[in-house]
Amino acid sequence: MAALKQEISQLATLGRLNLTDEEEKKFAGDLQEILEFAEKINEVDTENIQPTYHALPLENVFRDDVCQPGPPIETVLKQAPASIDGYFSVPRVIDRE
């Protein structure tokens, strides 16, 4: 349980979620149940079963290489928390990794 709680805490950090200690405990419990439920799949013999990569029985869905205009820039920037000179503006970040 303690290990799971730590995992929840790390996942929260990766997802930029601010969880309280109480929430971490609750989600750790939920995760425990989910994992146990998923464990059941191990009871099935999957020796000769091909892995499923997609729920739909479809393959090769493509589009042609044709350009289509997007929405006007005003609409695009309306979705930004803030914008300046056509750019999305965000709190300063340093270079990645």
Binding site: I84, G86, Y87, F88, S89, V90, P91, R92, V93
Partner: peptide, 11 residues
């Protein structure tokens, strides 16, 4: 990255 403000701009 802005040189004057504490902001980054995204294109």
């Amino acid at each position: 990255h802005s040189s004057v403000s504490r902001e980054s701009y995204v294109d």
